[in-house]
Write a protein that binds this DNA or RNA. Structure first.
Lengths: 196, 196
DNA sequence: CAATAATTTTAATCTAGATTAAAATAATGC
DNA sequence: GCATTATTTTAATCTAGATTAAAATTATTG
């Protein structure tokens, strides 16, 4: 039987598929994209996808897991690398924006949660809650250490996250636009936080 | 034959339907909501909807027209009532937020544009472009009159709009939450604009 | 190269949900 | 109350797209 080499081949293909799927879901929504839409992007048949994934729902679910993974990483790095709450918030926004516009493609299809089946949905909702909570913690930290002006962290968190999550709705992959977003968005979103 | 009374009856029912549809589309997306989903909310049969609307696509389209109408109104009122650019921006955000959380229901399903057929899509995209442009004009006005700090109006506009458009993803109709959003969001979104 | 495992395709199914037609019910004007 | 028009339902269609099974192709390994 085949060993490590195959494992890698399989994983690579699977990764390509998830990436293509995430991109489609982002553009057309879950129910709006057919498996043929996804497979066409890869020069495959729709049936081929079933070799990599149990069914369509599993496909979004995997996209979400990947998005959650990337999000968690971004959060961790931000908390590790930032000295003050403000810096952590700034870094997190920077990393999150990067996920949205980077060449990894838009991994995060945060709008499709209703399409998940109950167990998966609950899991993702839970992860998502924790994620929001972490960001609010950062804001609180900033308020405590004086780097961020006192504010309602729940609302402020939602406002900032929404801004970023909405990016895929108007950003369509042009490289120069990506650069612009990367360079300007973080400053715009944190300007309102700055204290002093 | 029936006259004005019926006209009104018809219009009222049609309005209820559009409202229910918008709400469903917001929760589950266009392809994710069946006509049965919509009709169930109203105690009707799915077939009944066809008396009011040519087909499903027409339904989203009408929702969009209504959303666009409300958006335009909000923009006009804001421009009329605000003295400075900053005030206009603040008012517009306030009105826009109100549309999202008000009892009119979430009219704006700005994510479903890809589901529209070409003509309708182009029309809505055009309207949407004009709308964004109007908001950017407000920001420029504010910069010119000194009430808003110089900034990239394109990016800033997108950031603010995104925040608001994302609200339906996490706001689920609880009245006290609506009040909180209404009272806090505008300040949060404009804090970063303030000059001086 | 032969044999086995991995990957993809072709060709059916199967189902949900949009759409339609005809019939039934409710409302209205006279 | 009758006749007409408005509204809704019931009962079929019709179709796109998800899913599956079996066959074909491609890699891998010894």
């Amino acid at each position: 039987m085949a060993r490590k080499a195959d494992e890698t081949r399989f994983e690579m293909q699977r990764h390509r598929i998830l990436k293509a799927a995430a991109s489609c879901f982002n553009q057309k929504g879950y129910s709006g994209t057919s498996l043929k839409d996804v497979s066409r992007h890869l020069g495959l048949t729709d049936a081929a996808l079933y070799y990599y994934v149990r069914n369509k729902e599993e496909l979004v679910y995997q996209c979400y897991l990947r998005a959650a993974e990337l999000g968690r990483e971004a959060m961790e790095r931000a908390v590790r690398d930032g000295a003050t709450g403000f810096q952590q918030a700034h870094l997190y926004i920077q990393y999150h924006v990067e996920i949205m516009v980077g060449d990894e493609g838009p991994v995060a299809i945060m709008s499709e949660i209703p399409s998940l089946k109950r167990d998966h949905r609950n899991e993702i909702l839970e992860v998502s809650r924790r994620h929001s909570a972490s960001f609010e913690k950062i804001l609180e930290r900033g308020i405590a250490d004086g780097s961020i002006d006192p504010c309602d962290v729940r609302m402020t968190g939602n406002a900032i996250m929404g801004s970023i999550n909405w990016i895929p709705k108007w950003f369509h992959g042009k490289a120069d636009m990506a650069a612009e977003i990367r360079s300007k968005f973080p400053a715009i979103l944190t300007r309102g936080l700055k204290s002093g």
